[in-house]
Amino acid sequence: MSNLKVIAPAPHFRSGETTSSIMLSVVAALIPAVVVSFLVFGPRALLLEAVCVAASVLFEYLFRVLMCGRDNTIWDCSAIVTGLLLAFNLPVGIPLWMAVLGCAVAIIVTKQLFGGIGQNFANPAIVGRIFLLVSFGGSMTTWAAPNGYFGVDAVSGATPLAILKDPELGLKPLPDMLNMLLGIRGGSVGETCIVALVIGGIFLIWKKVITATTPVVFLATIVILSLCFGLNPAYELVAGGAVLGAFFMATDYATSPVTESGKVIFALGCGVITMLIRAFGSYPEGVSFSILLMNILTPHIDNLTRKKPFGGVVK
């Protein structure tokens, strides 16, 4: 493929953007969250992230070059992003071999077996996470409870969402809003510090890597539905993986709709399913399932919101 010349009609504009430059922007946007994960959860978090990134890149290289004799695509840096996002979805204490297994499922099964970058049917990190959640429920729900920057309590504690789900645990104080925003609370490695994630998200919007549509509609839906279900909207917004999912995972190019109106429908669906699972389902967190389900619906959403090309015929 790379030897073929590409012929395209006018206009011949080049923006200088390549896949790798976009992916590196995403990595840059995730750096604040990486830093906070080290501060809150300690060096193990960095180890987990490094292992996931290394494993993802390795699996992509092994699969493409050794198994299939195709061209080596690790330089588009998408494996780095997938590895980092998967690490962000895991609890800090998870055995490393499980994380590596999750990377294998994410890269090999979800991405490469379906045709490589751009052809995946769902966000690879999400599929990896759900695979691990169903397979190793115990290890995936053992959370460390940080008690400030530079201090991790090895005692397993419940995440804020789990506390919310259990009315009796309400005797135990919910972390206050400042702690929630700064990330001093139980949860997976990357989802806890809202401030860092929002900084990264705004960076991505500024660099025009993503549009604000999906995150804004997703989070707004969560707020509105939490009011309808009688939950605390500010809390539902910052608890769990909502912010991480809204900015970094629901916006994956290959698995979310192309048009703005499609993105609105997509984000709306994500928000609805997340809140239904949080309010009525038995899992305390619904973001990953909602993103997966909406990913699967994306081709249909694209079909429904296809724009008529200028001068074209509407079927």
């Binding site: 055995p95 297994l101 099964v109 077996l113 695979f131 169903v134 397979s135 190793f136 429920g137 290890s139």
Partner: peptide, 22 residues
């Protein structure tokens, strides 16, 4: 001690089936 539980359930059945055919 730590089996990959998903393989014993329905989705895992499909995974393994597809894998063997491949």
């Amino acid at each position: 001690s730590q089996p990959i539980a998903i393989l014993a359930q329905a989705p895992g059945g499909f995974f393994v089936y597809g894998f063997i055919i491949a």
